[in-house]
Computed example of a mutant assay.
Amino acid sequence: MSHTTADQHPLHNALNLAGRALLAVLFLPAGIGKLTGFAGTVGYISSAGLPLPAVGAVLALTVEILGSLALLAGWHTRWAALVLGLFTLAASFFFHPFWSVAPEQVFVTQLLFFKNIAVVGGLLVLAAQGAGGWSLDARRPR
């Protein structure tokens, strides 16, 4: 939704931009960290038993960096939010399996898992609602 409607709150665009920025804050540093610590990222992916860990690392850092920049700019926001949401959902099951860790690790692992699920929820709302008026999407011709 790129234009203000009668039922839209006056802070709609500002809150939308703030939400996009806060979501991007989660993904951009993570993507940059994967890029600068590539060998460690490959090792971590490998330790989860996933195939082609170097390819997975490139995919992860690409999704996180480009997706977060797209959210910040409000560029193809619905697609960026969907891709980041699917990525986060998949990562949750592979890297935060609280159901299969040692008892002393369950609390933190479960917390991380459900934090990710909540982030997916926010990304789905963003995918449904769009970037708002303060975005590149709002400037694109329909």
Rank of each mutant, 00 (worst) to 15 (best):
M1G: 02
H3N: 11
H3Q: 13
T5E: 12
T5M: 05
A6V: 15
D7A: 02
Q8A: 09
Q8W: 03
H9W: 13
H9R: 04
H9Q: 02
P10I: 03
H12D: 15
N13D: 15
L15T: 12
L15N: 14
N16P: 12
L17G: 10
L17P: 14
A18H: 09
R20I: 05
L22S: 01
L23M: 08
L23C: 02
V25Q: 04
F27N: 04
L28D: 13
L28K: 14
L28E: 07
P29R: 05
G31R: 00
G33E: 07
L35N: 05
T36V: 15
G37I: 00
G37E: 06
G40Q: 09
T41G: 09
S46I: 00
S46G: 09
S47F: 06
A48V: 06
L50V: 02
L50C: 04
A54E: 14
A54H: 01
V55E: 00
V55M: 15
V55H: 12
A57V: 08
V58F: 13
L59N: 11
L59A: 11
A60M: 12
L66Y: 11
L69V: 00
L72V: 04
A73T: 00
A73G: 10
A73K: 14
G74D: 08
W75H: 01
H76L: 01
T77R: 03
T77E: 07
W79I: 00
A80P: 13
A80V: 08
L82N: 06
L82I: 10
L84C: 06
G85V: 00
L89R: 06
S92A: 15
F93W: 12
F93T: 03
F93C: 10
F94T: 10
F94E: 04
F94C: 07
F94L: 01
H96F: 05
H96M: 00
P97H: 00
F98P: 00
F98N: 06
W99L: 02
S100E: 14
S100V: 02
V101A: 11
V101G: 00
A102F: 12
P103L: 01
P103K: 06
P103E: 10
Q105D: 15
F107C: 01
Q110E: 11
Q110I: 03
F113D: 08
F114S: 00
N116V: 08
A118G: 15
V120L: 02
G122I: 05
L123V: 07
L124T: 10
V125E: 12
V125P: 10
L126S: 04
A127K: 07
A127R: 10
G130C: 06
G130S: 02
A131W: 11
G132P: 09
G133N: 06
G133Q: 10
S135K: 11
S135D: 08
L136Q: 12
A138H: 07
R139E: 03
R140P: 02
R142N: 08
R142D: 10
R142S: 09
